[in-house]
Design a protein around this nucleic acid. Structure first.
Lengths: 226, 226
DNA sequence: CGCCTATTTGAAAACCGTCAAAGTATGTGG
DNA sequence: CCACATACTTTGACGGTTTTCAAATAGGCG
């Protein structure tokens, strides 16, 4: 990839959108390009963290394993988003695994290079604070859901969250949804079957379409409380 | 409080520990002192966020409510830690409620004052990034636990996490523990009773003492897997 | 067509929550 | 100092949600 193309990709991310051309140039010269095929792991939970990545193209799933080997999906990320940054800022191993869902192109930046770059660019630091704050908010909201809400509600909320990001066509299997909601494939299937009967969703293999966002939102809000 | 005393408090926090005396002076002049009695709410989930707080003294519980009104505890904080910063950085309402557990003294800093201060102090911004990264890591680790582990394991992990921060004497009721683990008081009691019989813990009203950290760690790791 | 994966369904059981009741510390006021 | 209120702890029984295990069906792709 040419440095010019790298700059274009970097410029389109939220975190680096305010960089002037000179800084953009410096930053892009610090990046190295990486490619992954579908299902390939970009890094694994516990790996030493050498760099973080900006997603240039494709979709990435970030997950952790429970002690029983059950996969718990933390988040999905797409073009323009960062992954692996928590490990870099804490100077610790990656806290979760990242797996390519599609073909994925990444720009990687070495830990030390980036920290040096950051010290002189408080604007970028503030944007990173912003991104981390948003992720923390999401994460804590999901904590509340997992600790306090029933499976049906959790599934509804996950689907609403996903549809707000990628539209009403959700390219996920029931297993992927159940991993996100912290439940099992079978339970997810049973609940989605009910929804299908009631006309709230339709689905074909590996894809779910939300037909009635209003009723889905009612389900997400909880059982008839008044 | 004298400005000098405020500076001493601020200086002892991780985030502001590297500030030089001049900056320390500026920052402490931006703070206002607040006091809360036990059980009083410092702010509520959904309140507009005007400022964030540094804890000078006392302990604070941060929690969210589920749709059924069940309280889910996100974290406890003590002297030198920040609360309410996510709301400030995102310029959104507080995502959770903060309640004083003991008598609490706080230093509050207005949103806009702090953001202006931060723009010129990248060192502080980097420390904040560090703190947020750590909290995100914790939060995601708890997500994994809630989604993938059994109640006994979650309780064991919570207690280990707490004891690593405040020692082997845990000043919490079973209800507080159950709110942290995302379970009910009764279930927490049943499990802790078993542990007491097995000599892993002892307890008096409102306080639990860990007697056998090794076996507790085994429980946290999960059922005999091999 | 054959293989792999996704979806579906059923039955049984485990885990945990809910409800109810009683016992036990702690502190308060008389 | 005792009585009483309050909050924490304990125990039992029951039931519901969800998981687990098993097996069958169906869609997509080489």
């Amino acid at each position: 990839l040419l440095k010019n193309q790298k700059s274009k990709i970097i410029e389109q991310t939220f975190v680096f959108s305010s960089l002037d051309p000179a800084d953009l140039n410096i930053l892009s010269s610090l990046t190295v390009e990486y490619h992954f095929v579908p299902d390939e792991y970009i890094f694994m939970e516990g790996d030493p963290s050498e760099r973080f990545y900006i997603i240039a193209d494709g979709r990435v799933r970030v997950s952790k394993l429970s002690s029983q080997g059950k996969e718990v999906v933390l988040a999905f990320f797409g073009p323009g988003e960062m992954i692996g940054e928590v490990a870099v800022f804490e100077n610790k191993p990656y806290p979760a695994s990242a797996q390519a869902l599609t073909g994925v192109s990444l720009l990687g930046i070495k830990k030390q290079d980036f920290l040096s770059f950051l010290v002189c660019r408080p604007q970028v630091a503030l944007k990173i604070i912003n991104v981390l704050s948003g992720r923390l908010r999401d994460s804590q909201s999901r904590l509340r859901d997992l600790a306090g809400e029933r499976v049906e509600q959790r599934l509804a909320r996950i689907m609403i969250m996903l549809s707000s990001r990628i539209g009403s066509d959700l390219p996920f299997t029931r297993q992927e949804l159940s991993d996100m909601a912290g439940t099992t494939t079978e339970t997810a299937i049973r609940i989605l079957s009910q929804w299908k009967e009631r006309g709230i969703i339709s689905s074909v293999r590996g894809k779910i379409t939300i037909l009635d966002p209003t009723r889905l939102a009612q389900l997400a809000a909880g059982p008839l409380t008044g």
